[in-house]
Amino acid sequence: MHFSTSEIIEVLGTISFAISGTFAAMQKRLDPFGVLIIAFVTSIGGGTVRDLLLGDTPVAWMRDVNYCLLILLTSLATIYFKTHIKKFKVTLFVFDSMGLGLFTMLGLQKGIVFGLEPGMCVALGTITGCFGGIIRDTLLNQIPLVFRKEIYATVCILGGILYFILVYFNLKADLAKVIVIAFIFGMRVVVVRYKLSLPASYFRS
């Protein structure tokens, strides 16, 4: 059976965000049902917003039950193996960063398929990458990362721009995708490692 690059990216992205959602929920000590809900919305949130904006309905996960099964199995496996993982925060960061890169690329590609201008494709990629985490953090009563000083959405935007630059210079699309995903993941690691951030708002109540 042959899988396209986009299908592989989507599966890996879904798994990554399902794991990050599961760990985020376990940090808040939710019950198993709550953990599954958070894993689900983290995985499908960005793609759902993307598809609704494009008018591509029913949205992807409603057309293919395998996405739901993949999220369910990934979340259950993560819960089962939680005793073997001591650094929840690090694990959450790694899988969230992986999901960010993978889903940003998916959103970017879908914008291209729909014939959108490069700027709109970058915006769509950023939405796809970020909105699952926004919904997750909101449900967990946290300020979403994208709204804090930490550089998050900016990395997606830079990754999207990099993709079009690489394609412009005739790099093969599949290789460009891998480079962009690695770039977004690597940038997130650098940002957190060296505590880089955008200036905080100076508005005060």
Results as ranks from 00 to 15, higher is better:
166 L>N: 07
82 K>E: 01
121 C>H: 12
77 A>L: 14
110 K>I: 10
160 G>N: 14
94 V>S: 02
180 V>M: 05
143 I>K: 12
175 L>F: 07
83 T>N: 01
108 L>C: 15
180 V>P: 01
190 V>F: 14
152 Y>S: 13
125 G>T: 12
186 G>F: 00
77 A>N: 10
137 D>S: 10
103 F>R: 01
163 Y>N: 09
158 L>C: 15
122 V>D: 15
118 P>L: 11
100 L>P: 02
81 F>T: 02
191 V>L: 09
179 I>Y: 03
177 K>P: 00
171 L>G: 05
116 L>R: 11
129 G>C: 09
172 K>A: 15
108 L>V: 12
110 K>F: 04
94 V>H: 05
63 R>K: 05
133 G>T: 09
61 W>S: 02
102 L>Y: 04
138 T>R: 06
75 S>N: 10
178 V>T: 13
162 L>N: 07
164 F>K: 08
101 G>N: 00
94 V>G: 01
134 I>A: 07
126 T>N: 06
67 Y>R: 08
68 C>Q: 13
152 Y>P: 10
136 R>G: 14
70 L>I: 06
184 I>L: 02
75 S>K: 05
165 I>D: 09
96 D>C: 11
176 A>H: 08
155 V>W: 01
105 M>W: 04
117 E>D: 15
60 A>M: 03
146 V>D: 11
138 T>D: 07
187 M>V: 02
136 R>S: 14
122 V>S: 14
141 N>K: 10
110 K>D: 11
166 L>F: 10
112 I>N: 12
120 M>C: 08
